[in-house]
Design a protein around this nucleic acid. Structure first.
Lengths: 123, 123
DNA sequence: TCATCCTACAACCATCCGGTTGCATGTCAA
DNA sequence: TTGACATGCAACCGGATGGTTGTAGGATGA
């Protein structure tokens, strides 16, 4: 499991913080597309789309492959997984906190019901 | 499973695209902290940290609860899960593409080995 | 009441970001 | 070779962002 450094994490979240870029990722996840093909899908100028693609590429979310005069972009699934893993790790922190509270409650009060509905306040 | 609208997704990814803010989330995920306590952890000014907290709150990643004269911040785990789910959904797109290619290959060539090592190029 | 602490917010500044237009380069097909 | 298409990049612009300092208000405790 590849761990994201701070710089990379900054870049990846930054890259995903734009709906056009998220949409591009969605599209090239399904099939590789040239920059022109992508540009045709949006209202903005070709250059704008090209810049979005560049941002995604710098963040490692997509990569390009030359085919003739086109540059076909495809998603880098592993990087998406890395982000997901990072969030999993965060959630893990929370879970361990819940466990800690559980233990605390178990040690104090007389046997309550099941296990920690008090700590399970977050949906 | 709560689905993120584009505006919310923009805000959440944006909020996470800063290492200080990610660190704040990590901390308040483990235990609720007042803004002052958080501010003490970083080099920057109190106001800067307070603004970071405000960004996280606007994005729905944390919420605050008044306790006396302090404002204790705690993480909103559900929102973190929403982001993770969004990435899962993306990965799902990719998986379905792989399945599609699998089916294509199965229909064409004579029985190859197991299933699609050709499509499994992405780690 | 009054000094103190915690928080919020406004104003300001440098930089970044998302968009534009224009130009240069590369590759293909006649 | 030449025209057309695909891409990349620089320059520019307005608005957002991340930081600063300063001011003000609410809650606490003596």
């Amino acid at each position: 499991m590849k761990v994201l450094l701070d710089d990379q994490a900054d870049a990846v979240f930054q890259a995903l913080a734009d709906r056009t870029r998220r949409d591009i990722v969605r599209r090239v996840l399904v099939e590789a597309l040239s920059v022109s093909e992508l540009a045709a899908e949006y209202e903005m100028s070709f250059a704008a789309v090209q810049k979005h693609v560049a941002v995604l590429e710098r963040a490692g979310l997509i990569s390009k492959q030359r085919v003739g005069r086109e540059q076909r972009a495809h998603a880098e699934v592993s990087s998406i997984r890395s982000v997901r893993d990072m969030l999993d790790e965060l959630e893990g922190l929370w879970r361990s906190r819940v466990r800690r509270i559980d233990a605390l409650l178990a040690g104090e009060g007389p046997t309550t019901l099941g296990r920690s509905e008090a700590a399970d306040d977050n949906r």
